[in-house]
Design a binder for these strands. Structure first.
Lengths: 235, 235
DNA sequence: CATCGTTTGTTGAACATTCATTCAGTATGG
DNA sequence: CCATACTGAATGAATGTTCAACAAACGATG
């Protein structure tokens, strides 16, 4: 049902960025393509989720945030519910694309791949207050909404399976004793937990310290592959 | 403001449990002490949060869930907001009391203490679908509500400091190389992440597998203290 | 190229619903 | 009989949705 939204992401996003860069007054009447409008509204939704939280995010907020009129959301999306699902879908797609790209770029060495995946989780592009807050807003509602629950597995089975495979490979080459599935679960949980803490915004946790903790975990779990055992500054 | 609620927890809770055990028809008029009523409403709030989620939890839900009339919540608590804060406060207190008790019961050995803390996190009494869902509901709103944010640090500074101290102690006695703060952050994040996954309810993650993952982490990070290196079945 | 009609995006006010809160009244225990 | 717990209907505010009117792009036609 939402298949009409996710495609042409790149082009629409570029157009959106361009228009906001130019800061066009956006007069009246028709001005942008359907895809751009939808992205614009989705971005405004993320803004609102981050600023006001899920329960306080209203259609008016989104419309105002996008600088458009009140009825516009029900035109591009049928309902508030569908807007939110589309937003979550958008973030999930973005997240998946991001870690897949990082994995590809890491080459063939499993140890490098694993480290790249972990590092990718803390890239500015996806790991920032705004996005984290939006994710957490959806997490908070996921239990009682099957649709959200399914999509919140953006860090989904596929993602976790990559970790399981990598753990299994490293176990062989390093002669470790752990169970790959168990270790992979720990890793995934650690990453999510760090996200959660980042989002909560306790001062002592920053993107850097979070990544440092994750790397500490890697070197503890795979000492033969990450032997930089916590020297003063382990980049 | 809420100091009137948290005290006398034990007695009031017993009374509540007793009354629900007896399943009294709860006719009309005055029937129970103030504290019992408040606890009853808080429990109903947790139920609703777990079942309907934060954004769909209404005063009517809570009142109905408690089998009382509509206006009752505004009588015992001043507003919906205060009811929710009291509920979160209640869960935070319960959580803190739980891990403190586990810590005390673990004796003097740091390694045992750490293991006890980890295990305590997965006790049925606090780690069940209902409570996890309620926690996550609050997490989802925490970013935009300072009051929640403060209380959601139930796993607060004190909690994390205990982990830091234990990590430091074990580091000395085991000759590890990690930074205690970094490792403690990883541990806390792992526990929260596992909670999050448990709440999401993916089938492959149960309380047992979660605990197993946490223990795997312990034995990876502190191999000299937890040398049961992943034998077939490590209880 | 100008004009006109059609399609499509957009607006903002009206509407219906949901929900927290209030409060006057009732019942109960002491 | 008084203080206190409790009720439930009334109220008003907030909000998602609808829709009739409007405006811009587009295409066809002269």
């Amino acid at each position: 049902m939402l298949e009409t939204i996710t495609p042409m992401k790149a082009e629409a996003r570029d157009a959106l960025l361009e228009s906001t860069r130019k800061n066009e007054p956006e007069k009246r009447g028709r001005k942008a393509s359907k895809e751009v409008r939808q992205l614009q509204l989705i971005e405004a939704t993320i803004d609102s989720l981050a600023k006001r939280g899920y329960s306080e995010t209203t259609m008016a907020d989104v419309a105002d945030g996008a600088g458009l009129s009140r009825g516009i959301v029900n035109f591009h999306f049928e309902s508030k519910e569908k807007l939110l699902v589309a937003t979550l879908q958008y973030m999930a797609d973005e997240y998946a694309a991001h870690w897949r790209a990082a994995l590809t770029k890491a080459g063939d060495d499993p140890a490098r791949q694993l480290q790249a995946l972990v590092a990718a989780d803390f890239d500015r592009s996806i790991c920032n207050k705004r996005k984290l807050a939006a994710w957490c807003a959806f997490w908070g509602e996921a239990k009682s909404r099957p649709t959200y629950q399914a999509l919140c597995g953006a860090r989904d089975a596929a993602y976790q399976n990559v970790f399981i495979d990598l753990c299994a490979t490293l176990k062989q080459s390093g002669g470790y004793a752990f169970e790959p599935q168990v270790m992979a679960l720990a890793l995934c949980a650690l990453l999510e937990g760090l996200w959660l803490r980042l989002m909560m915004g306790t001062e002592d946790t920053t993107r850097e310290t979070a990544l440092q903790s994750a790397n500490e975990f890697l070197s503890a779990a795979f000492p033969r592959h990450y032997p930089w055992a916590s020297g003063p500054k382990t980049a």
